[in-house]
Amino acid sequence: DSCIQFTRHASDVLLNLNRLRSRDILTDVTILVNRQQFRAHKTVLMACSGLFYSIFTDSLKCNMNAFSLDPKVDPEGFAILLDFMYTSRLTLKESFIVSVMNTAIYLQMDHVVDTCHRFIKSSD
């Protein structure tokens, strides 16, 4: 028995999902962060965030198509994390790293929190 493993498949699929997001194709939820709106796919959000997993597995909430996040969430921090979900690349801007880390805590993205924490400690 043998098999062919396409080593790029995961990144090829993620790139296509990000293309669908940027063209607003099959996006099924709007996330409201203060006055900014972000369109996304529930499946990608719940695959990457513990908070969204809890929301969209709740039978009372999973059919809603718009969610407002806590007003303490920084839209820029959320935008950076949403891009990370769809690209696997986390933008590190000195001025935003704390806000990204706090937003990742809120979204229950523990591995990103740990990585941000290590980055902050190393840059100190």
């Binding site: 028995d1 493993q5 296509n16 293309r19 063209r23």
Partner: peptide, 21 residues
Amino acid sequence: YEGVNTIKEMGRSIHEIPRKE
């Protein structure tokens, strides 16, 4: 895939969705 001979294909695996139609 325990015990299976895996051949690694480094090339693209699926079509690329264009940035716009």
